[in-house]
């Protein structure tokens, strides 16, 4: 059964890479600034999921800690960018 898990990890990583490519396209080509921020938000979530699949494959705790840090810091960055769009400055 090990082979089944390894192959499904590979397939899941391919799908996540495709999803990251879509988000990257939206970030590069998005017509306006809010589209780019949405693309960045999706991109970091997809990268976090990719790290979790790496963690399942290797059973290394470092991957999960990295995923946790990305989840927390990405939220702060998205909030800061959205606030910048609204007010024109981050810290008032």
């Amino acid at each position: 059964m090990e082979l089944a898990v390894v192959w499904s990890v590979l397939v899941a990583q391919t799908m996540l890479a495709l999803a990251m490519a879509f988000a990257l396209y939206r970030m590069a080509r998005g017509p306006r600034a809010q589209d780019r921020i949405l693309g960045l938000d999706t991109l970091y979530i997809n990268a976090m999921l990719m790290l979790i699949t790496f963690g399942i494959r290797t059973a290394n705790t470092v991957y999960f800690e990295t995923a946790l840090i990305i989840a927390v810091i990405g939220f702060a960055s998205s909030i800061a960018l959205a606030k910048f769009l609204m007010r024109g400055e981050v810290i008032e």
Partner: peptide, 15 residues
């Protein structure tokens, strides 16, 4: 894992 990755792919396709 496969269903989760497919869901993510569908969401990004919508984006």
């Amino acid at each position: 894992m496969l269903v989760g990755a497919a869901t993510t792919l569908i969401g990004s396709l919508g984006l």
